[in-house]
Design a protein around this nucleic acid. Structure first.
Lengths: 220, 220
DNA sequence: TTAATAGTGTCTGTTAGACAGTATGGG
DNA sequence: CCCATACTGTCTAACAGACACTATTAA
């Protein structure tokens, strides 16, 4: 069968104002030209892999390289694309909001995943599965760190974990776990902008953990 | 790009004699005709999805429907297949050995994953990732149950978990967990074939769990 | 009876969470 | 001083693992 339409799509996720947001772009071509959909594109003969194709799409549509990109799953069937039997290798990317801000002012629109509009193809389902995967992995990995910026405070990071996991976390336990993971280092002399109270220590990921995911044996 | 070669491959796994085995089939066509490789095939226009294609391949090559089949990941690139830029949506299937026995007498060969021969394409890597996924999920899910037959004893099931996880498990804890999962039911009046010692109670999966995977919050 | 494995009751150490205290900023 | 939030020490409850004991079969 040579007539399979092969594409990649990327679910680009970020957190802004305590909300998980997905980046959508206006489609330039038929079908669904002008509609908001996941950024994606055809697999090219020049791509070294579908991962490479997803990276290329990200760079083209956002102007940056996402700190985290992973294959999600492949969605396929005769009905999902009006052009015919199609297959999309879906990926998901995580970026801090500061990074996506400029791009979002241009062709990308950030939409809360909690209030997603109807999307073309099966993009609604793809977003659901990406969010489910991120939520699931947040229980036992350092994935949420890729949504934080270069430096962040522990209260900020804990709020991100809580947001993704959908439940309140015990402060003492959370800090104990972060300590055990031995993944963060304090940024000397720098403190988070405080209100009328004690400011929080700033941290950053240790060098070794900026390119890989840390996983915990017993979660949280 | 219309020239992407779209295929599915299935890593069919079973346990025999305390060893995790993968089912390989002799390739009928070029490239690599006559070589042992993962059972697979082209995606057809009649398939409702790549999952459907994988099911069709399983039925054609084994004569049965595997109790568990899940998409693993998509492997792709210009080099992996000498025919050109190709993409394979890899799946993995779990079956009890009793089910695969007859088919294994025919076209399928069961090979221990611990002593895998060199495989064509990137099938070696695909098997590795399937095994890694199964091992990982065995820590916190009911997946190993799909490798057991209709009925089994708790010592048998524990040995399967230990085999997959690569570590000895505490008997009391294991039974406590199985109890909490509330997934098994004793088969009345039936006991495992015993030697010169007390025979073990036989169990089976409760109806509700024969078609889905149970996951544990805190592993084991 | 003995040997061998199945199954269980209970103790103990480890881990997670609750709670309350101290620390440090602004007003 | 007060308030608000950051951080920490410590007690308690929940859980997992070790151990030892009973149960049940064949020889």
């Amino acid at each position: 069968m040579g007539e399979v339409i092969c594409t990649v799509d990327v679910v680009l996720l970020t957190i802004e104002q305590e909300q998980l947001m997905v980046a959508l772009s206006e489609r330039e071509h038929v079908p669904f030209a002008g509609r908001l959909a996941l950024p994606g594109g055809y697999v090219h003969a020049q791509d070294a892999s579908v991962f490479d194709a997803a990276m290329r799409v990200m760079r083209a549509k956002t102007g940056f390289t996402p700190p985290y990109l992973e294959q999600l799953a492949t969605f396929s069937g005769p009905q999902r694309d009006p052009r015919g039997w199609s297959l999309s290798v879906a990926h998901y990317a995580l970026v801090p909001f500061e990074m996506i801000g400029p791009a979002a002012a241009g062709r990308l629109s950030l939409v809360p995943v909690a209030a997603l509009p109807e999307l073309p193809f099966d993009h609604g389902q793809i977003v659901s599965e990406a969010v489910a995967r991120l939520r699931s992995k947040s229980h036992y990995s350092s994935l949420p760190c890729f949504l934080a910026g270069d430096v962040f405070t522990l209260p900020q990071l804990q709020r991100m974990y809580e947001l993704l996991m959908g439940e309140a976390l015990n402060k003492v336990s959370f800090r104990r776990k972060m300590g055990e993971m031995d993944m963060l280092e304090a940024v000397e002399g720098a403190f988070g902008a405080a209100g009328a109270h004690r400011p929080a220590q700033l941290y950053r990921l240790k060098e070794a953990y900026r390119a890989r995911v840390m996983t915990l044996e017993r979660g949280l």
